[in-house]
């Protein structure tokens, strides 16, 4: 922690004084299974995605001392379309931009930044759906998360189901209405040397099971 940059300090203060109080006091979260997140090794969080709030909630789950080691993977075409947006999101949230359109040239180094972060003991948050779903639906999963897990077989993937942010800030709306969110954290999964397709399917299955468990609780 000796070589802190200005950007690191800004991110740290942003989460300590703005994001965390906002998530815990203005919105409120209800977490189940927080102890399943490893404390001293890198991990990949794979979650369903309905709202920008998802990222802020997931990043608030960790102790503030770890915040500089968490990076959400974000769509380059959306978050980095201007230099200003790129600077803001990289500084405040610490995103790792990723190309959503894979070309022959980009295919090799598309995961380069992510692999490097995981090697440096940093953790990532990824939304395998690749975009935000509407009305609390879970879309088809892209296989990116399985490719990352395959390249880093000793890093666990932690499936997470989030319910609520689609009400707080839906995809097609621009103002926030406070609600309490539910977060379900599942046991860690390692890449099992099957195909990337079946591993992706397995992760999706776990998240959908948590979704069904939540629904069952709602209609008791």
């Amino acid at each position: 922690m000796s070589n802190l940059t200005k950007e690191d300090v800004i991110k740290f203060l942003f989460f300590l004084f703005i994001v965390k109080p906002f998530i815990f006091w203005v919105l409120g979260i209800n977490v189940r299974g927080l102890e399943k997140i490893p404390k001293d090794k890198p991990f990949i969080i794979a979650a369903n995605h309905n709202s920008h709030i998802d990222t802020l909630i997931l990043m608030s789950l960790f102790p503030i001392s770890q915040i500089l080691k968490i990076h959400p993977v974000a769509a380059k075409d959306y978050f980095c379309n201007t230099k200003f947006r790129e600077y803001i999101f990289k500084t405040l949230v610490g995103i790792i931009p990723i190309e959503r359109i894979v070309t022959r040239q980009s295919k090799e180094n598309i995961f380069r930044d992510i692999n490097e972060a995981l090697k440096n003991n940093h953790s990532i948050i990824i939304y395998p759906e690749g975009t935000r779903g509407e009305d609390n639906t879970i879309l088809e999963f892209k296989t990116g998360v399985a490719h990352i897990a395959k390249m880093n077989p000793d890093v666990p993937v932690i499936p997470v189901f989030i319910n609520g942010p689609d009400k707080i800030l839906p995809k097609l709306d621009s103002f926030i209405v406070p609600f309490i969110s539910d977060i379900y954290i599942a046991d860690e999964e390692y890449y099992d040397n099957s195909s990337t397709l079946s591993f992706t399917h397995k992760i999706k299955q776990i998240i959908e099971n948590m979704y069904l468990e939540h629904k069952k609780k709602e209609t008791l």
């Binding site: 919105l27 409120g28 009400k167 839906p170 609600f179």
Partner: peptide, 12 residues
């Protein structure tokens, strides 16, 4: 109130 609104079904 936040707890109440999170508990009841609300329309989009």
């Amino acid at each position: 109130l936040k707890e109440f609104f999170s508990m009841i079904p609300t329309r989009r």
